[in-house]
Design a protein around this nucleic acid. Structure first.
Lengths: 207, 207, 207, 207
DNA sequence: TATGAATGAGATTTCATTCAT
DNA sequence: CATGAATGAAATCTCATTCAT
């Protein structure tokens, strides 16, 4: 079985295995091809180079993820502030459930992207996501700051919190294989984070 | 200037630069030697191999760090529980200030260790530190759990929180070059973390 | 001429020349490849490493030789003693002619194997052959010793004679390029050796 | 003890060990120096290069050996033929006992010379000795041949027998560490060889 | 005498990539 | 679509040797 799978498919499968085992840089194209039962030349019919092969695994899931984030934030932008407060408190579960579902639906890809991408153009993907989140939250918090006297956004904390959110996802996907359990965990984590949130990011101006 | 520095010193300097720029695996010994103004053979007079060169930069600072953690935890072990509560609340500042000082006193080394060690025997160093912290906190929280009815330790949260502490340090050192500012930030972060701490790690038994 | 020979063939040819000239250890793969008109990488398409290249030259002929010896000895095992006596006296010519033919049919390979293999896994090949012969002759002589009162096998002489036989072949192949002349010489040598044979290996028990 | 031995002596001792273990080519001067407790530079005060170090071990014993052979052969040259016959039969024991004594008095040196000299200018030493013996015996046998009608010297056999004698010594020194036992063995071997000697080397002219 | 440092040339090996067929 | 062969550049490492001090 599986032997009549298309070559491209087989290459991607063995690439996943090799990248997972050795990381991008130490992964050997020779081995990937051998495992897929073809010669190196064949690989170059389907992919332009090593990185393209990696991209074939992680590219689409990553783009979809970005679009989900973008879509969500676009939505928030158009909300009145009052709704946003609710959204922050309650809506996280909704978004994070959706994200989580996407993450776990593409488990292998995100595993590679988040932990084995060093040496590829994706090695900055985590930071990019952090930045995406950060930009959105900056808008949000600065909006708040303007309405509360003597408060300002602390940029470091903003960045760190953005990082923590992403790290929470990474930690989850690398430590909990079951999606439904992961959703429960993430819910509790978000509650925790949101608790101390505002005090940390919004500081008194004399700081 | 610097041309009369000793060769070993120059090698370490250019190694730092090269490792920082390219990461361990992509770093070229040729380039390191050329930048230091010696031939490749010279490197092997001072270091047994590439990894030994990396270790010459990060090894000692890492060991010292481990000893600091170990020393601290050993101390906690011998305290009565009442003191430990205080210690957790107040004492963190003390320890983290000391750690931070050590981190910043060896800024370059920890930068490499924490972000460029892939491919060396140090690539698991972060996880090791997480484990060290986790072990200590597990003892602490299980101790507490035994004294509060119907509570138990949630192992995932324990692990995640341990991770978060380490990540907080990593994030700090990679985003804030000034030590005194870093100490202030870390103090606030710790306050935040300790706040929600117990609710997260100690859960009701029916969970 | 010879430029359209296949690369692998050319590599083996220039390897033979280089190994012959310099010995295994001092032989340079660069030179072998240059002489064959390819880059060093090409070599590694056909051979896994330097030793594999050497093995590609000497491995098969050596295995065949071993099989010839094994086959012959297996035959002797099944003979009644009376026939063996004849066999020793007369049959040697038969075996040694066959061996000789094999040796000279693979002249280059055995030349390398017997005189240039230091540093390879074949460097013990001569001793192995000696051992093979010795084991067989030990059985034979011990068999005889049991039937002659007050005689025993002298292990040193047994070993030395085994060595002498192998050395006779080595000496021949390194000093006489013509096969038919070699066969004649070997025949006379064997006659000589067989003459004093028994007195030397079978000694009086009081020794 | 031994620590106040002179450096040169210690170098030679550790060189013996290293050459014996690894052979000349694979032997590491670094290791030899380290074992002797000095740095590489020191070695070059006493020896001009690696080969000179090897020569310092084997050179003198080899020269002495050559002189012994030369002296003996010179003596034979001046003898009347009648005495030589006796000499061949009986005198071998005398010479070979002397040779053997010399060999075993310089056991380590000859071990190296005979089995580990590949890569040095001594790698041909065995052949040289063979040649020395051969030259002498050629004179002897040609002398005889002239006096016996229809006989001539077979050059191949002459060479092979010369080889066999040397090989007998080599085999002995590599398999029997005790000198007195070695002398006994050699005596028996020589008897055996001399037995078939003449028939082999002196052949009918129609050959 | 001996050290410690450094050279410089070379070694084998690996690998992504290319391309004619 | 895929093969098999080959490239070419680079990699790490080893080692005998030299030399100023």
């Amino acid at each position: 079985m599986g032997e009549d799978k298309e070559t491209k498919e087989r290459l991607i499968e063995s690439a996943k295995a090799e990248f997972t085992e050795k990381g991008y840089m130490k992964a050997s194209l020779r081995k990937i091809c051998a495992d897929a039962g073809v010669t190196t030349g064949a690989l170059y019919f389907f992919f332009t180079d090593k990185e393209d092969l990696f991209a074939a695994i992680v590219g689409k899931p990553l783009d979809e993820l970005k679009n989900m984030l973008l879509g969500h934030f676009a939505m928030e932008k158009e909300m009145p502030l009052s709704e946003i407060y609710e959204h922050i408190d309650g809506g996280h579960d909704e978004l994070s459930a959706a994200l989580m579902h996407h993450l776990y639906a593409n488990y292998d890809a995100f595993m590679l992207l988040l932990t084995k991408a060093q040496g590829t153009r994706f090695e900055g993907a985590v930071d990019q996501m952090v930045d995406m989140i950060e930009i959105t939250y900056r808008a949000l918090y600065e909006n708040m700051a303007r309405k509360i006297p003597n408060k300002q956004v602390n940029p470091y904390m903003l960045h760190w919190l953005s990082h923590m959110i992403i790290d929470a996802f990474i930690h989850l996907i690398t430590h909990e294989r079951d999606e439904s359990r992961a959703v429960v965990i993430m819910s509790r984590i978000m509650n925790f984070l949101v608790g101390g949130w505002m005090d940390l990011v919004l500081e008194d101006k004399e700081y």
